[in-house]
Structure formats: structure tokens, C-alpha cells
Design a protein around this nucleic acid. Sequence first.
DNA 1: AGACTGACTCCAA
DNA 2: GTTGGAGCCAGTC
Length: 108
Amino acid sequence: MTDFRTRVYETVTRIPMGSVCSYGDVAALLGKPQAARGVGAALSVLDETEEVPWWRVVNRSGEISISHLSLSRRLQRVLEREGVEFDARGRIDMERFGWDRRDGPSGP
DNA sequence: AGACTGACTCCAA
DNA sequence: GTTGGAGCCAGTC
């Protein structure tokens, strides 16, 4: 197990239920803002039986960035059950559900 | 060690 | 809003 992967898992495990985070954000939290693809590689070796909630990591556009269609749909269902909302195009409002959001959704 | 792959992002048309 | 191309990085063979 590489140290990088270990740190990715520790960070992803901190994402609270009902929130999501982008690959780039996880990379930035590790001090490597350019390692977004590396984060994807680290999470790609996991599966749904793992303890790490890797399904809470989506791309910068708020879309599930997995090519396997049936799996991405399953992940969307899981996220919706956790309270994350998707629009008609299968996209998440990162301003509302992004873990790194600075202000709450019910702003002034 | 070297080359390929892809669950990423950014930027310019 | 899309599309194409170019960097970046870790995993795998």
C-alpha cells in the first residue's frame, strides 16, 4: 500500500454523508492540487465492499465520473439515499453538496 | 526502467 | 454550453 493511497483513503473517509467532493479537491487537501488523476487511480482499486466511501468523490462538474453506466447509476442511487440531489442531467449542485463549500445552502 | 492507461482539470476556440 | 488538446499523477504490465 503506497503512502499516497493511504492518505487519499483517510481524506475520503472524512467526507460526511450527504456531501460530495471532487478528485481535485481531495488532491489539494493532500497538498498535491495537480494529482486529481492520481486520486482517481487510488480510488479505482476499491469496490463497494470497502470501508472508504469513494462514491462521494465526483468530478469538478458534479458528475459521477465513471464510464461503466450500470455502476454509475448504482452510485447515484446510493448518493441520493444519503441525501445528495441530482438534476435531470445527473449532475450535482456542488455549491450545495460540495464538502468544500464555504457557505451553507441557506445563505442570506 | 519505460510505456500505456484512465474514476481529472484547465484553457482556448 | 461544447469540444479538442495538453499537462499531471498513480497504477499496472
